[in-house]
Amino acid sequence: MLFIIQALSLAALAAKVLANPLPQQIHHFKRTCSTGPDTSSSFLANPAYSAAANNAATPSGYINTFTNLHASNNADGYQGYTILSAYDVASCANSCTARPSCQAFNVFFERTPPSSNSYNSTCSTATIKCVFWSGGVTAANAVNTGSTQNGFEIVIAGSNGYIKSAIAASPGYGPSTYLGNNAISAPNDCNGKNTYMGFRILNDAPFNATRCAEACSAQSAYNIAHPGSDGVKPLTCQFFNTYETFKNGVNQGQWCVLYSQSWGKGVATNTGYTYGKDVYTIGSSYAYANATDAGVCVKA
């Protein structure tokens, strides 16, 4: 009799387990066809993806650069990606912070082809990706809307971008241009004039591009307030390059190099130098231009 009771108890337990399956926690294995037609348009219109993106809190130390786009970034300095089990911006931020070269990241849902790894291989899945970048992620470089592979449409939904506060665009300046381990080595402008306006070395605080923007603006204000006696229009700072310098691999501080004209990556040729037995190198180099007046040279 005891055996029969135990058998009945086990059967009841099994029925209970089958009636109440464990909740699906692995979001990137979730069948997209379980929430509607398994099409790219249905994926893009899924309100759950929009809700996740719109409700995501911005992590401390980062600035939200865009929210809920249908495109991922094609930024500077690709640093790889991880797959998340949930739309967890904080987790992605922690991973970025733990990577010395990561300055920005992008989180999004990607429609992924059916896979034998999914618990149902006949439906596409929603993969949640966390992608790391050394350069800034902005709405302007969020241009990857997906692709078609073997007739299957890969699309993006719920895409959010975040950049570290330390390299985010400062008021009055445009987004950063990532120069990697190179610094600007500017030639003369179109009139043969030198655009270099000096430098500042900051070694009393963590790397922060805003301090260079303040130095650039302050230099302009000073020059305007103290014009030369020759009547020549004062130079104003319209562009700066900030980076870290290293002596034999040891950080020596943050540099802010100021210019009266904007320059592109083509003149970012300064990689450092060797002095005696010491090797000086450059890292985390970013350039910023005045958002309203980049100081473009006009031939006199």
Rank of each mutant, 00 (worst) to 15 (best):
A48V: 02
N182D: 09
I4Q: 10
A221P: 01
Y87G: 01
N203Q: 12
K193A: 03
F43C: 04
A15Y: 01
D293W: 05
N46Y: 03
K129Y: 05
F199Y: 13
A19V: 00
D204M: 10
G180C: 06
S72H: 12
T292G: 06
T58K: 09
Y162C: 03
V298K: 14
G36M: 05
N241E: 08
V89P: 02
S217W: 01
Y243W: 12
T67E: 06
F246R: 02
L202H: 06
T274H: 02
L258H: 06
L258A: 08
L235K: 13
Q79S: 07
A218V: 03
L2I: 15
G192S: 03
F207V: 11
V250H: 11
V131H: 01
G276R: 02
A53Q: 05
N208H: 10
I128D: 00
Y259C: 01
R99A: 14
T236E: 15
D278N: 08
A221K: 11
K265Y: 13
R211G: 00
A213G: 09
A225Y: 08
T58P: 01
I163S: 04
N160H: 10
A86V: 10
P21L: 10
P37L: 06
H28Y: 15
T245F: 04
H226E: 02
G77L: 08
G135L: 14
Y275H: 10
S121C: 08
G264A: 09
T35A: 13
T125P: 04
Q24I: 15
G135S: 08
R99Q: 12
Y288I: 01
A213S: 05
P37G: 05
S116Q: 09
I201Q: 04
S220Q: 03
K233H: 11
N64A: 13
T125M: 15
A15D: 01
G249C: 09
T271G: 15
N251P: 06
S262M: 09
G146W: 07
S124E: 05
T245K: 03
P171R: 14
S101K: 15
T112E: 10
Q252L: 03
P37R: 06
Q149F: 06
S72M: 14
Y275F: 15
V296R: 13
A93H: 02
L22F: 08
L44F: 15
T148P: 00
S220F: 04
G36T: 03
Y173E: 00
D204N: 15
N54M: 01
P113E: 14
T127E: 07
A104F: 15
L69K: 11
I154T: 13
F29A: 07
N73K: 12
G180Y: 11
S262R: 15
P206N: 02
L84A: 07
S40I: 11
T269N: 15
A75F: 10
G36I: 06
S220W: 05
A12Q: 03
S159R: 07
Y243A: 13
E214A: 10
S124T: 07
A215S: 08
Y87T: 01
I128G: 00
V155G: 02
H70Q: 13
N150Y: 10
Q25Y: 11
S165P: 04
C96T: 07
S91Y: 09
A140P: 10
A215C: 00
A98I: 08
I63K: 13
V131M: 08
A56M: 04
L22V: 14
